[in-house]
């Protein structure tokens, strides 16, 4: 039995009578890249929002590192090492890239109730921000406002913010959205480089990226998980083909 770092038990979410997630049982194995796919409106974003803590489940529970985190607020999960990226790029547009990265790093340096010392002279923050920028190819843009970055670069910054505190689990919500085939390839390479270091739950529409990256795939249709398996198993699964792959290819 491999180590399961994050799993859900009969997770349900309904909005005003509409069932968005029904009895989800997702298991994320330590170190794997696990893709969560499904047609639009299948409830992928709802699932991510519940895992990260933005939405409170209607019923069921979520376990992270063996601990029940179902009702734990977003920031506490983040501090425990459960980190998410956003589908719509969510960086601090008016701050520079350096400030964005420093802020993300600061989040994991204990508390930030320091009222006096000038932040730009904080050597540790600056050094770690520079390291992070190097890793994500953002070093030459450090002083640029995040809002002025090209779309693909903004995406990379988004991932960098997500990785800042050395989390254990990454919840990546459509990281490839809208960055074009070139950017998509580059980001795929980058995520591939993270394999093994982090356990990644990847929601993605770009099937090339999914097939290139995923160790396992779960398929969500109408809020229900219809299959989980390796890339080959999912490709071969008739139900999946009927419900999803058949339509899109």
């Amino acid at each position: 039995m491999p180590d399961i770092i994050l799993y859900t038990k009969n997770l349900c979410k309904s909005y005003a009578g509409l069932q968005a997630n029904t009895d989800l049982n997702i298991q994320l194995i330590q170190g794997e890249i696990h893709a969560l796919i499904g047609p639009n409106g299948a409830g992928k974003s709802t699932a991510i929002a519940q895992l990260s803590g933005e939405l409170v489940p209607s019923s069921g529970s979520i376990y992270f590192n063996g601990k029940d985190v179902t009702l734990m607020p977003v920031y506490e999960r983040a501090r425990m090492g459960l980190s998410r990226s956003f589908q719509v790029t969510s960086v601090f547009e008016e701050m520079s890239v350096q400030e964005n990265l420093a802020l993300a790093i600061q989040a994991h340096h204990g508390h930030s109730f320091y009222f006096w010392a000038a932040i730009q002279k904080n050597k540790l923050l600056n050094q770690q921000a520079a390291e992070l920028a190097t890793q994500f190819g953002l070093l030459e843009h450090l002083d640029l406002a995040a809002g002025a970055l090209a779309h693909g670069e903004k995406r990379q910054l988004e991932i960098a913010l997500t990785l800042a505190g050395n989390p254990q689990v990454l919840l990546l919500d459509e990281p490839m959205a809208g960055i074009g085939p070139g950017g998509s390839k580059e980001l795929t390479r980058l995520l591939d480089g993270l394999r093994g270091q982090y356990s990644i739950l990847l929601v993605e529409h770009d099937m090339d990226a999914v097939f290139a990256l995923a160790d396992r795939i779960s398929v969500l249709v109408y809020g229900e998980l219809i299959a989980t398996g390796t890339v080959q198993e999912i490709r071969a699964n008739e139900e999946v083909q009927k419900a999803y792959l058949g339509v899109s290819t």
Binding site: P73, F92, Q106, I119, T162
Partner: peptide, 20 residues
């Protein structure tokens, strides 16, 4: 300060701050 940066972060994007 660090605190000031956090406050400004909350102004710009509170949801992101929590996710961080």
């Amino acid at each position: 300060s660090q605190f000031g940066r956090v406050i400004q972060g909350c102004k710009l994007n509170e949801k992101r701050m929590q996710a961080l």
